[in-house]
């Protein structure tokens, strides 16, 4: 039983680490800020989730497990909120998505502050 838990813990942590690195690579490789949010989403969901799952296998049925679950649930609830806030702020300040197909009827989202996209 110990052995099974140990192996599952290993697998979860390594898979989570790989997803973290892939997400970070996506943060570098993807072309614009909206695409990079998806890469950040990988780290916020599966990266954190799998690594914490692996740690939970190590923790056993203790208070530590409850704290791990609490942090995980907290991150899962807050990460879409901050992601959405960031996306919305970027859209408002006139950062156009790559392949801006929303132009005809998306004028209510990306309107008069076109100059803001060059701001760094």
């Amino acid at each position: 039983m110990e052995m099974i838990l140990y192996v599952m813990s290993w697998m979860a942590i390594i898979t989570g680490s790989v997803f973290c690195v892939i997400g970070a690579i996506g943060l570098i490789r993807l072309p614009d800020v909206y695409c990079r949010m998806h890469a950040a989403g990988i780290i916020d969901t599966v990266g954190v989730g799998l690594i914490f799952l692996g740690l939970a296998f190590q923790a056993g049925w203790t208070l530590v497990l409850a704290k791990l679950a609490m942090i995980l649930v907290f991150i899962l609830f807050t990460s879409p909120t901050s992601c959405h806030a960031l996306c919305r702020a970027a859209a408002y300040s006139g950062v156009h998505p790559m392949h801006g197909e929303q132009a005809p009827d998306g004028a209510d989202v990306v309107d008069d502050e076109e100059d803001a996209s060059s701001k760094t």
Partner: peptide
């Protein structure tokens, strides 16, 4: 290049710090 990229990167950095 935009300020939102930087905020996004810092948000991710914070999540990674938690891990």
């Amino acid at each position: 290049p935009t300020v939102y990229d930087r905020i996004l990167a810092l948000n991710t950095f914070g999540t990674l710090t938690v891990i």
